[in-house]
Amino acid sequence: MAHPLQAFFGRIRLFSTLTADELNDVLRAVRPVQLPAGQRLFRQGQAGDAAFVVESGAVEIYTEGPGGEVVVATLGPGEVIGELSLLDGSPRSASARAQGDTSLFRLDKQEFDFLRQNLRPAAYKLMRSMAMTLCDRLRETNDHIGDLLAPPPDAKAEAPPARAKGGWLSRVLFRGDR
């Protein structure tokens, strides 16, 4: 019998390559979370121990730095937050909080690791999808490195630091800058 959340999750790109059975594996481990408006979901720098999917409402992703707070994205229903932390639990690169009253689904890294250790195809399909995101970021990084290594147009003048094109790398490199 299909899990009631199959239809909702099946439309999300990260989960789109999973079969119904594989999706069930994941959904069994997913838990609902309710956040009142303004409540923080996680903080920049905290160890990443879960991924989230927005069910209703919206989540603001923001960075905190010497220049103050910068909202870098607002994520709505069907969007995934923090999935890369499932790979290695690395510190959150930004903070997240509920914009209005928001409900989400939470997948703990521990649950994901259990699927991974048991060689469940669901875990590896998700991992491959996440690795695709990492590949895109590495390519973006490589392109930016090329820009930094290019000789300046005027050999005498100092080249201004090249701002990174693309959203993700700019956010990482200039976190908190105004």
């Binding site: 790979l87 290695d88 690395s90 590896y124 991992m127 491959r128 990492l134 590949c135 590495l138 990084t141």
Partner: peptide
């Protein structure tokens, strides 16, 4: 292999 590559990519990016 996918597991190993994912870990490798994460580390390179970091």
């Amino acid at each position: 292999i996918v597991d190993r590559i994912s870990t490798d990519l994460t580390e390179r990016l970091r």
